[in-house]
């Protein structure tokens, strides 16, 4: 391997080790440290000048105290449970809303499809923050939705939607919808329509042909879409803080508050490590599904 090829590997490698791997090890280390009123607000700090004895002492002072604290304080495990619950329910809701759209796009005349694709992708390029914000004006007590419903006479007094779980679900479904639509659409688009005709010739009703032919063929798209929504929603911070009010505690928000408001770095780091441990399982599953799908298309 000559010098130039070596450089091509080394530069990005070193960058990722320095700015991804090492920071991650720092989180791990701080999560095992004790909180202290000092700058930085944790002990011990690694003192390499003390030699081997210093390193030994450093390791002997690390413990699982912060994790034990997370386990005993119900605030934390409740917010882990609520993150996972919200992520599961909203993934299901996004599938429910996204599948019919992806299905109709795949059945639309082929001349429309590039335009429809662009219409789905366009919101994805617009700021996430702005898309969440747009719902604040719609859902607030004197907002657009309530004004509209009162004007039509359907309700007499305004609903409280903003700062409830409903608002969080609406926000998640809205912002993550393209992630669900695109993978499902790409599997449905490749599907051979004559398979459906064959199923109907063989006596299937169109409803059972849908469940027996279309859905199984789209399964990789459905699974990929679900993971693409479920994994990031667990760490979501913006949606629960803007639409959920103070009663919704998702783990990303707890981490944020722990760090910025309580200045408890060790606990914030422990929260981050546990969030990562929770996400490792779906992430690994997702990569296996992706591999299977690639093998299937080759």
């Amino acid at each position: 391997m000559n010098l130039r090829r070596l450089l091509i590997v080394i530069v990005p490698y070193a960058w990722l080790v320095g700015l991804f791997l090492i920071p991650f090890l720092i989180i791990l280390k701080i999560s095992l440290s004790d909180t202290a009123i000092a700058i930085p607000p944790y002990t011990p700090t690694l003192d390499l000048s003390a030699g081997w004895a210093g390193i030994k002492e450093f390791f002997s002072e690390l413990d699982l105290e912060n994790y034990y604290f997370l386990w005993t304080d119900s605030l934390y495990w409740k917010s882990f449970v609520s993150s996972i619950t919200i992520a599961t329910i909203s993934t299901f809701l996004t599938l429910l809303v996204g599948f019919p759209i992806a299905y109709a796009m795949a059945r639309a005349p082929s001349a429309w499809r590039p335009t429809l694709m662009m219409l789905v992708i366009l919101p994805f390029w617009t700021s996430f923050l702005i898309r969440v914000y747009s719902w604040m004006g719609i859902l607030s007590t004197n907002g657009f939705l309530n004004n509209f419903l009162m004007w039509t006479g359907l309700i007499d007094s305004p609903f409280h939607i903003l700062n409830t779980p409903t608002a969080v679900y609406i926000g998640i479904v809205y912002t993550y919808l393209p992630f669900m639509i695109l993978p499902i659409y790409s599997t449905l688009e490749k599907m051979d329509i004559s398979l459906l005709e064959a199923a109907e010739d063989l006596g299937c009703t169109s409803r059972s042909a849908f469940w027996l032919v279309t859905v199984p063929l789209a399964r990789y798209g459905i699974i990929a879409g679900c993971f693409l929504v479920f994994i990031p929603v667990n760490g979501e911070f913006v949606i629960p803080s803007l639409l959920g009010g103070s009663r919704i505690n998702m783990i990303g928000k707890v981490l944020w508050d722990e760090f910025f408001n309580n200045r408890d770095w060790p606990v914030a780091s422990a929260v981050a490590i546990i969030l990562l441990l929770i996400l490792v399982v779906p992430i690994v599953l997702f990569q296996r599904v992706q591999q299977k799908q690639e093998e299937a298309t080759v």
Binding site: V17, F20, P232, L275, L276
Partner: peptide
């Protein structure tokens, strides 16, 4: 390790990336 480090940030929650870099 290299390919792992290339793929991991794509699925890593923002809060963790932000926190770890700040600590660095």
């Amino acid at each position: 390790l290299f390919s792992g480090m290339v793929y991991a940030p794509l699925v890593m929650p923002d809060v963790i990336i932000g926190l770890s870099l700040l600590l660095l």
